[in-house]
Design a protein around this nucleic acid. Sequence first.
RNA 1: GCCUGGGUGGCGGAACUGGUAGACGCAAGGGACUUAAAAUCCCUCGGAGCAUAGCUCUGUACGAGUUCAAUUCUCGUCCCAGGUACCA
Length: 926
Amino acid sequence: MYSMIDERYSPEKVESRWQEYWENNNIFRASEDQSKNKYYLLEMFPYPSGKIHMGHVRNYTIGDVVARYKRMNGYNVLHPMGWDAFGMPAENAAIDNKTHPAAWTYENIRTMQGQLKRMGFSYDWEREVTTCTPEYYRWEQWLFLKMLEKDMVYRKESYVNWCEHCQTVLANEQVESDMCWRCGEMVQQKKLWQWFFRITNYADDLLVHCDKLPGWPEKVTVMQKNWIGKSTGSELSFQIEGKDEYIKVFTTRPDTLFGATFMCLAPEHPLVESLSKGTEQEIMVAAFVDKISKQERSSSAIESYEKEGVFVGAWCINPANGRRMPIYTANFALMEYGTGAVMSVPAHDQRDFDFAKKYNLDIIVVIQPKSATADANQSNSINSDSIPAIAILDPATMTEACPEPGILVNSGKYNGMDNVQAMDEITNWLESEGLGKKTVSFRLRDWGISRQRYWGTPIPVIHCESCGVVPVPESDLPITLPEDAHLLDNGGSPLPTLEFFKQATCPKCGRTDARRDTDTMDTFVESSWYFIRYCSPHCTTGMFDMEAVKYWMPVDQYIGGVEHAILHLLYSRYFMRVLNTLGLIDFKEPFTNLLTQGMVSKETLKCPEHGYIFPEEAQFADGKAACRKCGKNVEIGRVIKMSKSKKNVIDPNDLLNKYGADITRLFCLFAAPPEKGLEWNDDGVEGCYRFINRVWRLVATCIEMTKNSVEVNGETTGKSRSQDKIFKPYTGPLSEISDSEAKKLYTKAHQTIKKVTEDIEGSFHFNTAISAVMELVNTMYSIDLTPNSSDEMKTVTLFSIKNVILLLSPIVPHFAEEVWELMGLSVRCQSADSADVKNSDSIQKLGTITEQPWPTYREDALVTDEILVVIQINGKLRSKFSIGADSSDELIQTTALADEIVKKHIEGKPIKKIIVVRKKLVNIVI
RNA sequence: GCCUGGGUGGCGGAACUGGUAGACGCAAGGGACUUAAAAUCCCUCGGAGCAUAGCUCUGUACGAGUUCAAUUCUCGUCCCAGGUACCA
């Protein structure tokens, strides 16, 4: 029967067959089983943008390999998948294609689910969650009401990007160099009443726990810490000249108070208008505030604007020295941070220095850096490891601010004090005067969740003229998104135009002219708790079933793009804290271990006529590209992460059609370690196909060489005639093998098991794991394996090939199942001869490869007899030699010194030093 | 701008805790097999030089430094990517 094995591996024949087998036998269905250790493995669910692209394929392949690996290690694995189905692209598509966001979304889900199934991922599809269904978002509305009850949500006025021409709100992405992407009109800022989650209440807790997430990459926790941005400092009050009013500032440098020479207020600061009123600056200030109010408010935009400001026509008094300080309004002072006011110390802050130079404001030095004072005293000293020798700071000659620590000057009674000490002393003094206190400030802002969009979760409140904001009664949930709505051509939400939706009866007073909130929630809200919904996706009595959550949560391993390092991950952490505070769960951190994969990227292509185009819509020739539709030259843009909106995506279908799922999976993993970014290029895929075929032929060879009997787990399988020898994989000690070639192979096989296990367990470095298996396969190819090989070689070969298949099985599961069966190792091929299998127990034991235990290695089989030692002379490699593995350092040193090449290099020169690195290297210094 | 990463042959990448730079694979070139092609197998493959079975120099973005020894540690510079709160 085995001579019937095909010459080449044919994925199209094999893959669908095994996918059906897994599905029909519910192999990946997860249920709470208290007797087993659970393992919740989660990949970030996708936004259903159309088709999956290589970024998804890579992410989900990594996850699937881990899921299958953990299953083989005996865990009860939960591996769910779903859809982050609300979002802006559905609205844009609806406008462009004259369809409905729901129709577009569900169609995409269908397509993408088909693609994922074709990849052979081991999801429990019974648990599929789709966030745009009322069954899902009703619980989000429910939670919103709970949060409202507990004052965890509030309303305030806040700005949005506004296009006057389209009469609509724009996302930051829809603003292209200050203009509306649809019509090109200059974008303005508009103030709207919006809902905010009080995430800042948890700022400290979120920050502190960043250091209690050992399973997270440090770069992610560092980014989150910086994002939260806790700074300790002081809040100081400056009296406005001639008034009994004070300006409060937050500063991290109270030690520089005596050097504060002017004050900057955010343009939206209420004092800006009131102070300038009636002064000759009034018009200038109003014009400036108006100009700033129209500018984009994203922090990258704000930082890119030139720092500028306008005098508001009033002064305040420096509480330290009574100095008159002009008050400015400046574009770099942010209302959202601190108190919206900044005391400016130009001598010691670069931004203030630049501002002072620009507007010709006073600069007073109040700290002399220690290095400068020391250098000044010993004029010729060269201080090699510090700042270039500075003379004593002089405002007249300074070219930049000096933020260095040092000794206070020009600071009255604090002169001569160390500046760090002065921070406390000056704050304490002002506190005693009632003008200051120590405080902390966070960069983190409350989470604005109101969106003036259609395709999102409706916010469950009603606005009543008599009662104000009234929560929708729980019994009225869900507030479903009306489906008979058409997107407006300008991109605006149709909800405010739908009278039947908007009209509501006030639950409190019964007024019938109340109106429903027509805003929807930020889609980050859905993705902040979907992972907990997976535990009990069909629960109708609450967000989740407590028992199921107790069993499965937290997520043991979360895998997704590093792009989500801050927002999504921080919001999810915040949401668990909310649920915890509400008493719904007993933990705070959702994800124990996190793997952030690097972005799969590709250059963008932009046609002057058709805008962004897909790679297949361009014709490439000598480094240039032309649009296939209009023939015009296409602008080849930067290499950026794949995204549907920029159309720089590669659909895996071509690869799947040509090579199948396994080769595609193998290639994605072999290309680079997961955390590294990947500029897409499929040049190496052919090599992966070759490798799989090498294994395929090796399997055929092994079957041929051992004929038709193999024993697994003590059970003989396959047909054996009495005259046949029965070969089974050798698993005994290395020392009992006499054939030196078999010995080497046995060692290599055990080393490979160790290497692959460690690469997966330690860092998910599948690329090196695959390399290791390739090496083992190469070793096997270097041996002449025939039916005439020694019995010893046959059993060692069987051990090796069995482990090649097991080690590869999480990566190329269809292929592995197939060859496992061909080798007579799976229960499936037993069905015809079930009499061979003595009892149902052994069926259980055999199973298919998916149910096999992960292989283990023998320590005794890892060691080799000889080691290679390299000889360096003055750090340069000159020679090397092999020596017994148990040789002493002394023996290694004398062997090295006796080396002919070494002798030639030394030529009687005196040896200054010899360094011997254990069993590795000798460095002779002459 | 700011925060976080990254930069190694023609290409993707490897190198444990500072100890042989280039594992594994792709591409390329040469050869074997074949009527031919595909497939497969074997050999070469960072650069330069020389007295070419080999040897020497040089090389991990760039410039310094620490060390017997640096892709790895320190400082500085350049470039690229991710995020920057309404893309998800």
